[in-house]
Design a protein around this nucleic acid. Structure first.
Length: 644
RNA sequence: GCCGCAGUAGCUCAGUGGUAGAGCGCACCCUUGGUAAGGGUGAGGUCGAGAGUUCAAUUCUCUCCUGCGGCACCA
């Protein structure tokens, strides 16, 4: 007679062999109907498995996160059953739950096509309608292997063979179909809400290894009800509207073309944005005690051999040569070795440290063609890079300073949700334990002091030192790894960087590699998507458009625009022979922060009718041109120059 | 790099085995209109590149290039 305790503290005893379903039914008929699984002492189980011992249980429905996972997991199984029914000879492999849905990897000679989706979805619905009982069975390992081999499921057989010795081999049967699975599952296929949709088709390597066969992966999404599915599809649509590649074209920010794969042609609008961001970063860095430098693009192969890049990073480097000189040069993929060269000029004293060398360093890396993605992953980019050369005992202080600078910048740029990832020593590494101890302690202390959420990733540091990575969450919840600070005990050694200490002896400085934005290209991509193109005034390529109602106001419009321009604002005029409605619509669509409408009335009084973007438009205000200059030029100041 | 899909006007896209079409944009004309699309006329295309099948290819087949979605990669 197991004694069952419920989440609300109540408890009851039930006869032996009682199942989660029985208990749910005992509570209420409607709960039994909605029940998907049961959590027994924290472990998720099938509804129909007997609860043997005294335990605490919770009935899981579609409202619980666990319930949603079960739904997605079952959707994957139903998909697999549907596919095997429709396409005999297809082998099943794995089908896990992922964020917002699931996928299933199939092995089949002929390719699937998205045109098959409709048919497969219909078959899935049919399987749901059949309401097949989903039954758990425990099999003998060898028998299971034999069985799956006998029906031609080589991948499944391999999976079972690779399971640990003591693992229970559970098989789930739904109707005629069965699959190896840890479970748990819904009680029957009829419990799967018809709120699923197949989304896309892609190739994926068996077990994620590119040396293995390529399988065909079907992605799907599944939800508790149709409303949730619709909401999800809506979110996808919203995200597509923000796509920086789409907005980049619409707003005439940049373009890319095949002759310069993975490299950006910045248009005037985009370059204005770029410059605004770079100018801002430059001021923040100057303020933070950095010295800006500029180093060469092309360096001799011998140099990269010394730095170690030729050995380790060769396949990512663009190589150049010139017949006349019989030399091989490489385009720099990173700035660090060059910065060490600057450090190495002349003799450095401990008094020179910390030395913070910054460069908006243009780098090129050969990225595999399949990795390229708009501004987010490019082959030519500019880093907001800097290297801090310091003594070991200065690491803590420098990392802390960096963290506060970085937080300042992220806040200014509109990102409030930031996380830190702290990664310490990997198995294979350079440098003694003593210095790793120091550096790890410094990074960890600084990370904790930021007040941000810290994720610990043991063993995930670089071979040359521990690191902190910073992750932003954007307006629609996506995460981006941007900033980083990494201690490096290796490069100063390789490139023989030294300083003279208080003791008059030569010492090795520690080098801190750090970036806040990462690359301007990628960060601008993130900014475009975060703001959905509606930039704050200081970043907006065009800050204000002066638009005329009729031709009569053209002279005044020019005069007003000049006045605003002289106050440092980025102003355009729209004197076209078009109706004001048309102009307002066009500039609103272009997300220009302000439209100053001028007609005869404004011209006579030296006023402007100001219309701010995004306020429903109705909040227009007629103010004097002078007031507009004061107000707008104040509003257009970058965050670091604003007094308030 | 691997798998799948795609490439037609400046943009978004329709279409066909007999050398192409829409909307927007652009140019010109009419209209001078007070806060999210006024009207008319017109220009604009080697239908991604190459090869093959065919009397005939933008359309079918193959190769390549580029893009997109994943996978792998991102020290």
């Amino acid at each position: 007679m197991p004694e069952i305790r419920f989440p609300d503290g109540a408890s009851r005893s039930y006869p032996d062999g009682v199942t989660g379903f029985d208990i749910a039914e005992d509570i209420s008929k409607s709960l039994a109907k909605k029940a998907l699984a049961v959590e027994v002492d924290g472990e998720l189980r099938d509804l129909k498995r007997p609860v043997e011992a005294d335990s605490e249980i919770r009935i899981i429905t579609a409202r619980d996160p666990e319930g949603l996972e079960l739904i997605r997991h079952d959707a994957a199984h139903v998909l697999a059953e549907a596919v095997q029914e429709l396409f005999p000879g297809t082998q099943v492999t794995i089908g896990p739950v992922i964020e917002d849905g699931f996928y299933y990897d199939f092995a089949r000679e002929e390719p699937f096509s998205t045109e098959d989706f409709e048919k497969i979805e219909a078959k899935m619905a049919e399987i749901v309608d059949r309401d097949e009982d989903i039954v758990r069975e425990v099999w003998d390992r060898d028998e299971a292997i034999k069985y799956f081999k006998s029906i031609g499921e080589e991948y499944k057989a391999e999976l079972i063979a690779d399971l640990p010795e003591n693992e229970v081999i559970s098989i789930y049967r739904q109707g005629e179909w069965l699959d190896l699975c840890r479970g748990p599952h819904l009680p029957s296929t009829g419990k799967l809400p018809k709120a699923f949709k197949l989304m896309k088709l892609a190739g994926a390597y068996w077990r994620g290894d590119h040396r293995n066969a390529m399988l065909q992966r079907m992605y799907g999404t599944a939800w508790a009800d149709e409303k949730a599915l619709k909401a999800h599809l809506n979110r996808i649509e919203e995200a597509e509207k923000r796509d920086h590649r789409k907005l980049g074209k619409e707003m005439n920010l940049f373009h890319m073309q095949e002759e310069a794969q993975g490299q950006v042609f910045w248009h005037p609008n985009g370059w204005t944005l770029y410059r605004a961001l770079q100018d801002y970063m430059r001021r923040r860095q100057d303020e933070g005690g950095y010295k800006e430098i500029r180093t060469p693009q092309l360096m001799d192969r011998k140099f990269w051999e010394e730095s170690g890049h030729w050995g380790k990073y060769r396949e990512n480097m663009f190589i150049s040569s010139i017949e006349e000189e019989d030399k091989v040069l490489a385009v720099k993929p990173m700035n660090c070795p060059c910065h060490v060269q600057v450090f190495n000029q002349g003799q450095k004293s401990y008094r020179d440290l910390p030395l913070r060398l910054a460069e908006f360093g243009s780098c090129h890396r050969y990225e595999p063609s399949g990795a390229l993605h708009g501004l987010m992953r490019v082959r030519g980019f500019v880093q907001d890079d800097a290297h801090i050369f310091c003594r070991e005992d200065q690491i803590t202080d420098e990392v802390k300073k960096f963290c506060s600078l970085l937080q300042r910048v992220y806040t200014d740029l509109g990102f409030d949700d930031v996380k830190v990832r702290y990664a310490d020593r990997p198995e294979v590494r350079v440098g003694g334990d003593e210095i790793w101890d120091k550096a790890e302690k410094a990074l960890k202390t600084a990370a904790d002091a930021t007040g941000l959420d810290v994720l610990y990733e043991p063993g995930d540091g670089a071979f040359y030192g521990p690191k902190l990575d910073f992750v932003l969450r954007d307006a629609i919840g996506r995460e981006w790894q941007v900033g980083t600070i990494q201690a490096d005990f290796n490069l100063p050694e390789r490139l023989d960087a030294t300083y003279i200490g208080e003791d008059g002896e030569k010492h090795r400085p520690v080098m801190l590699h750090r970036a806040i934005l990462g690359s301007f290209e990628r960060f601008l991509g993130i900014l475009i998507e975060n703001y959905a193109g509606a930039f704050p005034m200081w970043l907006a390529p065009t800050q204000i458009v002066v638009a005329t109602i009729t031709e009569d106001a053209a002279d005044y419009a020019r005069e007003a625009a000049d006045t605003l321009r002289k106050a440092g604002l980025r102003v355009e005029t729209d004197l076209r022979n078009e109706k004001i409605n048309y102009k307002v619509r066009e500039h609103s669509n272009a997300k220009v922060p302000y439209i100053a409408v001028v007609g005869n009335r404004e011209a006579e009084e030296k006023n402007v009718a100001l219309r701010a973007f995004g306020e429903g438009g109705k909040k227009q205000e007629v103010i004097s041109l002078d007031d507009a200059v004061t107000r707008l030029s104040g509003e257009a100041l970058p965050p670091d120059l604003k007094t308030s």
